[in-house]
Amino acid sequence: MDELRDLNTMPVPSELRNNVFVTTIDRFVSYLYNWGRKRSVWPMMFGLACCAIEMICAAASRFDIARFGSELMRPSPRQADLMIVSGTVTKKMVPQIVRLYNQMPEPKYVISMGACATGGGPFKEGYNVVSGIDKFIPVDVYVPGCPPRPEALLHGLLKLYEKIERQSVRAVPWYQRGESEAIPVPILGPDLIDPRRLPEIRARLAELRARQGASTETSS
């Protein structure tokens, strides 16, 4: 490996400048690998709300997402590379979305389409609305709009290409040792519960109870 790294700094004779391509294995493999997969990103057939209609329009004849190799919408998460979260994420739905994300094989990407998926949008103040899907799953590209036009979704897809292009085979998490961890599925209790936040919830609940206890003591 050290020799390979030296290649970068090795002087190249001037007569060979245009004939020799100096690179590292990592860069070369990453380039080929990313070139091969970036233009066949298969989205999951998964619509949530209004944005899903624009997603369907992006797949239809006028906008034609097939030009970018993404027309093959897979109904099963097991065959999908990309999850387009297209619409308002509600508390009742978020356990299913996280489960679907966990079921997707790596490498996997997420486009958050529209204002609702990104941060709650116009429905943010609603009691059943999650303020953005990135509270639960990692998002690669955000597409603004309410709903974004099909062109905007295509632009988001191109941005995703750029991101895929830049990934290094050595650094990506899915080729590291060990298994990648699933995201804990949220729980529907009296309200939505994020299992990762349970200690914090416990502490805050104790704080609330203490406050409540203090106020009843003073009043009695």
Binding site: K124, I187, G189, L192
Partner: peptide, 24 residues
């Protein structure tokens, strides 16, 4: 809105609820 509210999220839990029993 997250910075403004007590729970820092769009959630609220009743006082008598036990988080150790959190189960769907």
């Amino acid at each position: 809105a997250e910075d403004r509210v007590f729970w820092h999220d769009n959630v609220q839990y009743p006082l008598d609820w036990d988080p150790d029993q959190a189960e769907d």
